[in-house]
């Protein structure tokens, strides 16, 4: 099923709202399971999670450690008077992980929509087109610069520089070269980008038409309302339980 990017935005927003507000391990687990089911339903490839694995692990690890060492509840593990691990801390740590997983996994729902479709969703929600385009292009800039840094790294090595045989200081120098095209190139690239935008008549008129047109189907409306109802229900349950 192909859903409107706006529907997906609502879903992501609903799930991450829950992740932020709910402080209950069981409810959070339910939300996580739902996120996984929904994301799987869209057959999102989680490949990029794999690529960002180290970073995510680091983030989750830090959060987990910070939380479990904040004392509350019964002592699970300690040396003499010095408390190391408490039930409260452990629960907190687990919640942090759950929360982050919900946010990361729910965000993958958006991956199936192209940036152009998301722009269109925003425009049809009455966001001015200039702003929608600019935001989206700014976001697109990040992978472009990443690619450029990667190319520079390849090019540096192909000049006969064997990275693994270098001293640490020299290695740092290589990295600084890698970011050279990124840093000095950024202004240049931004200029080239605005040149090609304007040379193709961007902002020639206050209005513009759009080739892709998004229409909310019955399914979209259904899912959107279901998401909102679900979110409100969960929040109510959570407040009543407290």
């Amino acid at each position: 099923m192909k859903l409107d990017p706006r529907t997906k935005l609502v879903m992501v927003f609903s799930l991450s709202t829950l992740a932020v507000f709910v402080v209950d391990t069981l409810l959070l687990s339910i939300v996580l399971i739902i996120s996984i089911i929904v994301s799987n339903f869209f057959k999102e490839d989680w490949g990029f999670l794999n690529r960002a694995r180290k970073f995510i692990l680091l983030l989750v690890g830090i959060a987990f450690l910070q939380s479990i060492f904040s004392p509350s509840g019964e002592i699970l593990f300690g040396i003499k008077d010095f408390t190391l691990l408490t039930t409260g801390g452990l629960a907190k740590g687990i919640r942090v992980i759950l929360r982050m997983l919900v946010i990361i996994i729910s965000a993958t729902i958006m991956k199936g929509s192209s940036p152009r479709e998301i722009i269109q969703g925003l425009i049809q929600w009455k966001v001015p087109y200039e702003i929608a385009f600019m935001v989206s292009l700014a976001i697109r800039f990040i992978p472009i610069l990443g690619q450029e840094a990667k190319d520079a790294f390849t090019a540096i090595q192909l000049r006969g520089i064997e990275i693994d045989k270098l001293s640490l200081t020299k290695r740092f120098k290589v990295y600084s070269y890698m970011f050279m095209p990124v840093l000095s190139g950024v202004i240049h690239r931004a200029k080239e980008l605005s040149t090609s935008l304007e040379a193709r008549a961007f902002r020639a008129y206050p209005e513009r038409t759009s080739y892709i047109k998004l229409e909310l189907s019955k399914n979209d409306l259904l899912i959107m309302s279901a998401s909102i109802v679900f979110t409100i229900t969960m929040l109510v349950i959570y407040i009543l339980l407290r």
């Binding site: 450029e148 520079a152 090019a155 090595q157």
Partner: peptide
């Protein structure tokens, strides 16, 4: 063979030379 070692033997020109220039 590491990329650096290949670079010592083979000179490679990218189709898009801007991609291989990184000095001021």
């Amino acid at each position: 063979i590491s990329l650096g070692n290949i670079g010592k033997k083979i000179g490679y020109l990218f189709q898009q030379p801007a991609r291989q220039l990184f000095n001021p």
